[in-house]
Simulated scan of single mutants.
Amino acid sequence: MERIIFEIPLRNGKTAKIYQGAFGSGEHVTTKCCIGHLERMELSGKSMLDVGCGTGILGICASLLGVGSVVGYDVSFDACRTAVQCNELNNVTDNHVACGFETCINGSFDIIFANIYYDILLAISDFIYGSLNEGGLLVVSGVPIEEHYDIRKHYMKYGLEVLDLQIHEDYCTVLFSKGRLAH
């Protein structure tokens, strides 16, 4: 059986290719918004964490856009297997995939993406904040629009500053910074 491959054109002329097999085909508005943020960020030499990586789409796009290194993790074995296969499809070797919970991640990152469920964003907020370098950027997405105020308020209690809020039909995406912005 032939697998469907989704192609995501990037602003730098490269195209990410994704097998379906987990969340993250590039068609959902929250994924598109996250990719848009990636395309506007200075990625060279930066480290990135993709929380709930699904197909690995954000890590693959970041890699193709020139990020220094990226780690993604997911609790779903099928998602992690798909992410590894998508890495191979794109000849990406610097998007490292870990299967497990946030406890499998040790380190800090310049950029964190978390395009996941609202309740998980709340439950692991200490981990996310603690993993974000000073001057780092955090993008949370997949938040139902009726919860956007609460998620902003929750992350702002850590001292994060809202740089951008995008409200879509059913979901929102928020870009935060931690302290002084990294250059």
Score class of each variant (00 low, 15 high):
64 L>D: 02
86 C>A: 08
21 G>V: 04
82 T>G: 10
85 Q>Y: 12
33 C>T: 13
63 S>N: 04
16 A>T: 03
15 T>D: 07
103 T>Q: 14
52 G>R: 00
79 A>W: 04
53 C>F: 04
48 M>S: 09
36 G>K: 09
108 S>N: 15
140 V>P: 05
73 Y>L: 02
41 M>A: 09
51 V>C: 04
145 I>D: 07
140 V>C: 08
123 A>F: 11
151 I>T: 07
113 F>K: 06
129 Y>P: 03
131 S>Y: 00
119 D>V: 10
30 T>E: 06
14 K>R: 12
22 A>P: 01
102 E>W: 13
106 N>H: 15
115 N>S: 13
124 I>D: 06
39 E>V: 08
148 H>C: 13
102 E>L: 12
42 E>Y: 05
105 I>N: 07
150 D>Y: 09
81 R>K: 15
24 G>A: 14
85 Q>P: 14
143 V>N: 00
106 N>G: 15
88 E>A: 15
42 E>F: 03
6 F>L: 13
114 A>T: 01
19 Y>S: 07
36 G>N: 12
26 G>K: 06
53 C>V: 10
91 N>R: 12
146 E>K: 14
116 I>K: 02
79 A>T: 08
58 L>P: 06
95 N>Y: 04
81 R>G: 10
101 F>H: 15
88 E>V: 15
141 S>C: 14
94 D>G: 09
118 Y>V: 11
67 V>A: 04
134 E>M: 11
47 S>V: 12
64 L>V: 06
52 G>F: 02
77 F>K: 15
69 S>C: 14
22 A>D: 02
146 E>W: 15
77 F>Q: 14
71 V>T: 00
106 N>V: 15
82 T>K: 06
24 G>V: 10
